[in-house]
């Protein structure tokens, strides 16, 4: 929902970032206000996940130029865990497995850490169990996943659902979902999209990285951005995604008239 008066949550200007010496982000600009839903599309390797990791503060990536402001605060001063506690959430494209660490323990620690940060009540294991089971119902997840190790042996789709479960628990102010739709079956896509829609409100914002229109049928974006070679080269409304789906990315270079409505 676009409201030009709502507060700016994320402001990225001329962001350059390198990993192992290679420059991947080459001047990203994006502004996200609370209440908005953005989609970022783009070819494989264009830098979408890199942008997500830089935003979340992955230590392997170095910001070499530009600014990254969250709620007016310079993110470069914050460690990744501080960014998370401030309300930035990243649903990973490839969630890692953590053998030996029970999912319920992990979820509870994450939940309590963030609650503690917000000065809100932390839950003991029994209380948390009730709480998390409710959230799992929303995503139609089997509670058996609580007793398994974090993501270990989860199918691709199960991992993605576990990411959204974490989003539901942590209630971030800015969530970036990196290809959460890839690997989800048709039913799961609808369930997850429903869950995400329920979490979305005027005080938070969402960035969806996706390759497919399908997800955007369920979660309707206010803006669609196209990333190419480490920059956002085009921004428009939701119709841009449909056009891309029909014509492919090359079409962007041959067709410039759609650039119109920049935020």
């Amino acid at each position: 929902m676009i409201n030009a008066n709502s507060k700016i949550l994320l402001e990225v200007h001329d962001l350059h970032a390198t990993v192992s010496g290679a420059e991947i982000l080459k001047g990203v600009d994006i502004t996200v206000r609370s209440g908005e839903i953005h989609a970022i599309m783009g070819l494989n390797g264009s830098g979408k996940s890199t942008f997500a990791k830089v935003l979340a503060g992955h230590p392997s990536y170095e910001v070499t130029r530009g600014t990254l402001l969250f709620d007016g605060q310079d993110l470069s001063a914050l460690a990744p865990e501080e960014r998370a506690r401030a309300g930035i959430f990243l649903a990973f494209q490839y969630p890692v497995e953590i053998p030996g660490v029970a999912n319920n323990q992990f979820l509870r620690l994450a939940y309590n850490t963030v609650q503690g940060q917000r000065g809100e009540e932390e839950l003991d294991p029994l209380e948390f169990d009730d709480f998390v089971r409710e959230k799992m119902k929303l995503l139609k997840m089997n509670p058996d996943f609580l007793d398994r190790s974090v993501n270990e042996g989860f199918s691709g789709g199960e991992k993605k659902r576990n990411e959204i479960l974490q989003m539901a628990l942590l209630e971030p102010r800015l969530a970036l979902l990196d290809e959460t739709d890839s690997g989800l079956d048709i039913d799961a896509l609808r369930i997850v999209a429903n869950g995400v829609n329920q979490l979305s409100n005027k005080d938070n914002a969402l960035i969806l990285v996706t390759h497919y229109q399908r997800l955007l049928d369920y979660i309707v974006p206010d803006y669609v951005h196209v990333m190419e070679a480490g920059r956002i080269i085009r921004t428009s409304g939701k119709e841009l995604a449909q056009a891309l789906e029909t014509h492919g990315y090359d079409w962007i270079h041959t067709n410039e008239q759609i650039t119109g409505a920049l935020p």
């Binding site: 990791k53 979340a56 503060g57 992955h58 230590p59 460690a79 990744p80 865990e81 998370a84 506690r85 959430f89 990243l90 990973f92 969630p95 890692v96 953590i98 992990f106 620690l109 994450a110 850490t113 963030v114 940060q117 974490q166 942590l170």
Partner: peptide, 9 residues
């Protein structure tokens, strides 16, 4: 990093 992204140091 996964832990950190969930607020855990």
């Amino acid at each position: 990093f996964y832990f950190a992204q969930r607020g855990i140091d």
